[in-house]
């Protein structure tokens, strides 16, 4: 039986305070402006900051698809693009990876607070990510954001630009930049 798929599935993951919400809303805006449809969800959990946060996005390029009848969730093995602002957060979505999944990950590690269970942490979570054998672009995007914009939160923007320049998603890097900076106050 052939399994059909007619959309692009994206997860943006990070921890509270890294700007996952803003970045997601920017991409949502760009998708809608481009005449496509999108839905998905933003999951913040209970924590105020430093907790795991992610948003799922399902982009439907074909306007004729009744996208609102579709699930807001992504199936396991069905992820097209992961943008992870922190290496542990990239690993959290491993069950969604398939052979084609593209991963852009910032290498700036924010160790989870695990109390006395410190031995459950990885020595090098970035190495674990590479060991998953997927297509990974990893660098310290937070450092890049500080260097370019003097704003650590712009790390997500830089990652999104990479995704667009590599044609992982069919949008224009110039436009996402414009939306990102112009919406900083309004979103």
């Amino acid at each position: 039986m052939k399994i059909k798929k007619n959309n692009i599935n994206i997860i943006i993951a990070g921890i509270g305070g890294q700007g996952v919400g803003h970045l997601s809303r920017c991409l949502w805006t760009l998708v809608v402006r481009s005449g496509h449809n999108v839905h998905g969800s933003f999951v913040k959990g209970g924590a105020q900051s430093l907790g795991s946060i992610y948003s799922t996005m399902r982009i439907f390029v074909d306007k004729n698809i009744q996208y609102e009848n579709y699930s807001h969730q992504i199936l396991e093995n069905d992820l097209d693009l992961l943008i992870a602002l922190e290496p542990y957060e990239s690993l959290r979505y491993k069950n969604f990876f398939n052979d084609e999944t593209k991963i852009i990950c910032s290498t700036n590690i924010v160790k989870p607070w695990v109390g006395p269970l410190e031995n459950c942490l990885f020595e090098d979570p970035v190495a674990v990510l590479f060991s998953c054998g997927r297509d990974v672009i990893a660098k310290d995007f937070q450092a890049l954001a500080i260097q370019k914009h003097n704003n650590v939160k712009a790390a997500g923007l830089e990652m999104m630009i990479i995704a667009m320049e590599n044609n992982f998603i069919p949008y224009n890097a110039k436009e996402i930049k414009e939306i990102y900076w112009s919406s900083l106050k309004t979103f």
Partner: peptide, 23 residues
């Protein structure tokens, strides 16, 4: 009998949960 949606068995490690913390 088509491919079932189960995770890649090569990726069987546990990712530690972030416990809630105060800001």
């Amino acid at each position: 009998t088509c491919s079932k949606n189960v995770a890649d068995s090569n990726l069987k490690f546990e990712v530690p949960e972030r416990l809630g913390v105060f800001c």
